[in-house]
Design a binder for these strands. Sequence first.
DNA 1: GTAGCAGTACGAAGATATTCGTACAACTTG
DNA 2: CAAGTTGTACGAATATCTTCGTACTGCTAC
Lengths: 130, 130
Amino acid sequence: MGDTATERPPLLPEPSIEELRLEAVMGALADPLRMTVARKLLLESDEFDHPCGWFGFDRPKSSLTHHFKALREAGVIHQRQYGLERRSRLRTEDLNDRFPGLLDLIASTAGDGESNPSSPAHRPEAPGTS
Amino acid sequence: MGDTATERPPLLPEPSIEELRLEAVMGALADPLRMTVARKLLLESDEFDHPCGWFGFDRPKSSLTHHFKALREAGVIHQRQYGLERRSRLRTEDLNDRFPGLLDLIASTAGDGESNPSSPAHRPEAPGTS
DNA sequence: GTAGCAGTACGAAGATATTCGTACAACTTG
DNA sequence: CAAGTTGTACGAATATCTTCGTACTGCTAC
């Protein structure tokens, strides 16, 4: 598994660093589900991209696609086309560079609202194939 | 009279510090006009409450009332009933206490979008009652 | 007392965002 | 190769937010 950067699938269209606007980012993060995505990506993921099934939401798939797209278009996450599935990753560097303190803010308010929407006996297990 | 704190008009209903939610604050700040209000209050005002005419927006009055109410209900500003007019003030302490770094974020992105919508020859003068 | 001013309350129209069902495409497994 | 799985694309209904016009209130000035 030569995990070099050049081996990765292309990046889906997204705003450049210069185009990032604080209002748009905040608008994206105003939704509880999307805030949960960003927080989970920030706290529980390392450097790997995660498919949208990794988050353990029980919403319809179409809704999830919509929200992830909103996050990408606001500049909060990267999205790559890993073959069939589209994996997401927080734009940590860009956000820290453009809006220093924002990610700390998200991390520090972790226990604020709802963490996992609903999956009491259905823990989000790793997408590993057995 | 002595201008003590007890002399001031009552505070309009607002969420307590414990009730402040980051998502709600970000939702309020997602609007350009409301972001401008918060930024202007943060950078150009001292400790005084300002009437909504101080900001120099040329929108209809009803719209301004709506936006200021949204800011208050999200917990971004205080509002007091100074006689006839309703003056606004940033909840600096509460926001810094609850979401440290947020105000710095707003201040640092000052030159991002639009600053003053329109008031070239109508500088905001102090609301002093002569 | 009368006229003028500034701002809020209320209601409705319009735009926008969210939610979801269904159909389709590509990979994986046996 | 056939079946199953996962996720996206598209479209429509719903809910919500935004915007604005109008009417009303209370103070100020002369």
